[in-house]
Amino acid sequence: MITVEDAMEKNVMVFKVEDRISDVAEILRKNKISGAPIVNNDQIITGIVSEGDIMRLIEVHSPQINLILPAPLDLIELPLKMQHEFDEISKGLKKASSVMVGEIMTKKVISVHKEISISDAAQIMDTKKINRLPVIDENNKLIGIVTRGDIIGAMGKKG
């Protein structure tokens, strides 16, 4: 039986609740990962953040313009509408960059112990529609993380 311990990544990128979203987003992008656990000073998981959580911060507005047969007023107002939309997106990005990760993280985190099988971990991910599972020890401290990719990779090594 292949366990989560066999498949998990032990070097886990983590964040603190007071980290700014703009910094978190940049670190996730640079490291090509889509999410990470949030831990306290004792390495106990307090939440998890994903690209989806960050994306929900940014509201995208689109101007209502009749593109097939624009009215003359639409053509006159188009530059004004576009500037307004740009200003709204700019405001949204500025607001998002000042938010702390603790404000948007998922607080109810599903985690697993290292002894469970990867097939059980895969079933949890599928049932709960999540992409990653933090792995904890008997004291609830973070010791690793297993992703869908890790499970698929471990299954490939089986044969």
Results as ranks from 00 to 15, higher is better:
residue 83 Q to C: 11
residue 34 S to T: 11
residue 33 I to N: 04
residue 105 M to S: 07
residue 55 M to C: 05
residue 125 M to Y: 02
residue 69 L to A: 14
residue 94 K to A: 14
residue 114 K to E: 07
residue 85 E to I: 15
residue 79 P to Y: 13
residue 124 I to H: 04
residue 28 L to D: 08
residue 121 A to V: 03
residue 149 G to H: 07
residue 89 I to M: 15
residue 66 N to H: 10
residue 43 Q to V: 11
residue 27 I to P: 06
residue 106 T to P: 09
residue 98 S to M: 15
residue 37 P to L: 02
residue 157 K to F: 02
residue 33 I to R: 03
residue 74 D to K: 10
residue 26 E to T: 09
residue 153 G to H: 10
residue 146 V to S: 00
residue 126 D to L: 12
residue 122 A to I: 00
residue 19 D to W: 10
residue 126 D to P: 01
residue 130 I to S: 05
residue 130 I to R: 02
residue 133 L to W: 04
residue 93 L to V: 15
residue 117 S to G: 06
residue 134 P to Y: 13
residue 133 L to S: 02
residue 94 K to E: 13
residue 28 L to P: 13
residue 88 E to T: 12
residue 35 G to M: 09
residue 92 G to K: 04
residue 93 L to D: 14
residue 130 I to Q: 04
residue 68 I to M: 14
residue 51 E to I: 07
residue 26 E to A: 13
residue 56 R to C: 04
residue 103 E to C: 06
residue 57 L to V: 11
residue 123 Q to A: 13
residue 14 V to D: 00
residue 9 E to Y: 06
residue 152 I to E: 01
residue 13 M to F: 04
residue 60 V to Q: 05
residue 75 L to S: 02
residue 126 D to K: 13
residue 105 M to H: 09
residue 26 E to M: 11
residue 18 E to V: 07
residue 56 R to Y: 07
residue 74 D to N: 13
residue 73 L to S: 15
residue 155 M to H: 04
residue 89 I to T: 15
residue 123 Q to V: 05
residue 23 D to A: 10
residue 71 A to L: 11
residue 101 V to P: 04
residue 36 A to Q: 01
residue 69 L to H: 14
residue 87 D to N: 10
residue 35 G to Q: 05
residue 29 R to D: 10
residue 159 G to H: 14
residue 54 I to Q: 03
residue 122 A to Y: 02
residue 84 H to P: 01
residue 116 I to C: 01
residue 86 F to A: 14
residue 130 I to Y: 03
residue 91 K to V: 11
residue 75 L to C: 00
residue 5 E to G: 07
residue 122 A to Q: 04
residue 131 N to W: 01
residue 92 G to F: 05
residue 138 E to C: 08
residue 98 S to N: 15
residue 103 E to R: 05
residue 40 N to K: 03
residue 76 I to G: 01
residue 116 I to F: 05
residue 138 E to Q: 11
residue 88 E to A: 14
residue 33 I to Y: 00
residue 21 I to M: 12
residue 54 I to T: 06
residue 145 I to A: 03
residue 119 S to P: 09
residue 150 D to V: 03
residue 149 G to I: 06
residue 103 E to S: 08
residue 9 E to Q: 13
residue 90 S to E: 15
residue 157 K to Q: 08
residue 21 I to T: 11
residue 63 P to W: 00
residue 76 I to P: 07
residue 84 H to E: 14
residue 1 M to C: 05
residue 124 I to D: 01
residue 21 I to R: 11
residue 153 G to S: 12
residue 15 F to M: 10
residue 24 V to H: 02
residue 52 G to M: 15
residue 67 L to Q: 08
residue 70 P to D: 07
residue 48 I to R: 09
residue 98 S to G: 08
residue 20 R to V: 12
residue 20 R to S: 13
